[in-house]
Amino acid sequence: MKLRLVSAVLSALILALAVGVWHLATLAKGGPAAADSEYAKLVGAQAAAGAKSAFPTPADLGRKLVEHARDPFYDRGPNDKGIGVQLAYSIGRVLLGFAAAALIAIPGGFLIGMSPLVYRALDPFIQVLKPISPLAWMPLALFTLKDSDISAVFVIFVCSIWPMLINTAFGVASVRREWLNVARTLEVSPVRKAFAVILPAAAPTILTGMRISIGIAWLVIVAAEMLVGGTGIGYFVWNEWNNLSIANILAGILAIGLVGMALDFLVGRLQKSVTYVE
């Protein structure tokens, strides 16, 4: 309890320090500085004069965040949607791609884990396909699927599938022999054995794979949406870069971090619920 309190105080101090440094670094500099005339034309007289840094202050970001929080779900056309709407698009794509991957990877991993033959036969393919950056699939997906939205989901699918497949196979293959022997001596049917013995035995390993997958999927969706554009938090960040709204970019980054944390937390809770002590 005491440790928790002290660590919370320390966290708050670190945050305060970081914000303080940031605040000092972005303070308006006093007095008109002699600016290069060409530079002034480029960035605008005010910025060139050093009246205010182009990088937002913590207060600017705070105001932006309040603004976003007040109305996260507005929709004023293709280039002006609330941050909540954009996040919802991204989360939707991630969940869709992730679910499709789980639907294939978990039964597939079961099969691979149960059969050394299938394991050996598929291993070279997995080894080659696993290290490919999921974004490398994007052009191929755009060409074959002819739809940027589905392509983004496909990229999520591709990047989510490997950790789940490999972990499921590993978890299934390493179920303790004696538990399987218990099922054998009780003449348990193969289906019941799969669901009542192998699945719960391998569940913690499978969930670890799912946790890795959802983490990677959330990393990849931002990049994928920057490429395909249209909607999503990745597109939002890129669009705000085009708008030169650094405060919005920061708001987007913060939102990405918070959602990523939430996704990890949710799968982590699920993982905890299936973990057993031997």
Binding site: N181, T185, L186, A201, A203
Partner: peptide
């Protein structure tokens, strides 16, 4: 294996979950 023969395993082999 058969249900006609019950086995008590060396390492108890209980399902821990």
């Amino acid at each position: 294996p058969s249900l006609d023969r019950g086995v008590v395993f060396q390492g108890h082999a209980l399902l821990p979950w």
